[in-house]
Each structure stands twice: as structure tokens, then as C-alpha cells.
């Protein structure tokens, strides 16, 4: 469980991707950027484990239990489908796509983490338990990933803002 990048880095990367999409596609609005950020956060719902450990659930329900599928491909698909059902129907297809983009960025970043064994986690579960070689780029306790992501986020934010201001000058009714 120690091998997950910190949530802030994931959320910042979700913000960057979402904002870039909003620059490219007009129908991606700030509310939709939030959906990419939620997707980027979603595999870390596994951190419920810190509050409600597997063993506690096991004791309460009397069945074997593990939160870890939440942090895999299979768990991600189920979580984002459930999440999109919470939205009104006309937003679901787009939300599903935006959640998926965010979640993909999360798994990509986490496969790049440094692990003592040199293997990443079984990201493709339940399709296969194959573990990709770990990227070995950083640890979740490193500070530079959040710093780099934060700087890029600020740049992307100011570019998006400038474009929005320019657009509202062209279309004063906007």
C-alpha cells in the first residue's frame, strides 16, 4: 500500500489534462475539468483502507475482504461507471470519458513509481496479474512530482484564462 503517488500530484495532473482538453474542445467547461480530476483521484479511493482497514471490514461482515481491487483496472471501470450514474443522463457519456482519462493518468503515474522489487502493482487485474516493470522515477513521499505538476498547472491555468478572456472579447454576449 505504500506504493501510490500522493493524491495532490494526481489531482494536479488531472487538472492539467482537463484544462488542456478545455482549451482544445469548447464543450469541456470547468465543471468537466473537475470530472477529470475526480477520475484522476478515483483509484486512490483505496485509501479508505487507512480509515477502515481490511481486517475491520472482515470482522464486521464476517467475510474475507480487501480494498485493493479499487486500485486496479477492473475496480476503476466499476467505480467510474457507478460515478457516472450519479449524474443526470445527458452528462453521463461525457463524464465517463473524462473519468476514464483521469483514471488512466493515475495508473500511468503509479506504474512509474519506484518499488523495492522493481515490479509495479498488478494494474490490469482482473484481466491478468502480470506486473509491469516499475518505472522507478519517484516515491510517493517525494516532493518534486507535486511541485512540477503544480508549476505546469499554473502555466496551463494562465493560458486557459487568457484564451477565455480573449474569447469573451470576441463574443461579448458570452
Amino acid at each position: 500500500m505504500s506504493d501510490v503517488a500522493d493524491v495532490l500530484t494526481h489531482v494536479l495532473v488531472g487538472y492539467i489534462i482537463g484544462t488542456l482538453l478545455s482549451i482544445r474542445y469548447e464543450r469541456v467547461q470547468p465543471t468537466h475539468v473537475t470530472l477529470v480530476m475526480i477520475g484522476a483521484l478515483s483509484p486512490d479511493f483505496v485509501k479508505i483502507e487507512l480509515l477502515v482497514p481490511d481486517g475491520l471490514v472482515m470482522a464486521l461482515l464476517g467475510v474475507p475482504f480487501s480494498w485493493s481491487p479499487l486500485h486496479t483496472l477492473g475496480g476503476t471501470v466499476l467505480v467510474i461507471c457507478l460515478g457516472s450514474l450519479l449524474l443526470a443522463p445527458e452528462y453521463r457519456a461525457q463524464a465517463l470519458a473524462l473519468f476514464a482519462i483521469g483514471a488512466l493518468s493515475h495508473h500511468t503515474l503509479d506504474v512509474l513509481l519506484m518499488t523495492p522489487t522493481g515490479d509495479a502493482y498488478a494494474v490490469f487485474w482482473p484481466l491478468t496479474e502480470y506486473r509491469l516493470p516499475a518505472g522507478g522515477l519517484y516515491l510517493s513521499s517525494d516532493r518534486w512530482p507535486a511541485l512540477v505538476a503544480g508549476l505546469v498547472a499554473v502555466v496551463v491555468w494562465s493560458v486557459a484564462r487568457r484564451r477565455r478572456d480573449a474569447a469573451s472579447e470576441t463574443h461579448p454576449l458570452g
Binding site: 481491487p69 475496480g75 523495492p116 502493482y121 496479474e129
Partner: peptide, 15 residues
């Protein structure tokens, strides 16, 4: 899936 993984030894997040 949470119960299934809890019941098997194949923890996707552990080495």
C-alpha cells in the same frame, strides 16, 4: 471483487 481478492492470496497491490 473486494471479497474475492480478500479470499485469495493474489493481492494486486502487493508484490
Amino acid at each position: 471483487s473486494l471479497v474475492w481478492v480478500g479470499a485469495t492470496a493474489a493481492e494486486p497491490l502487493e508484490s
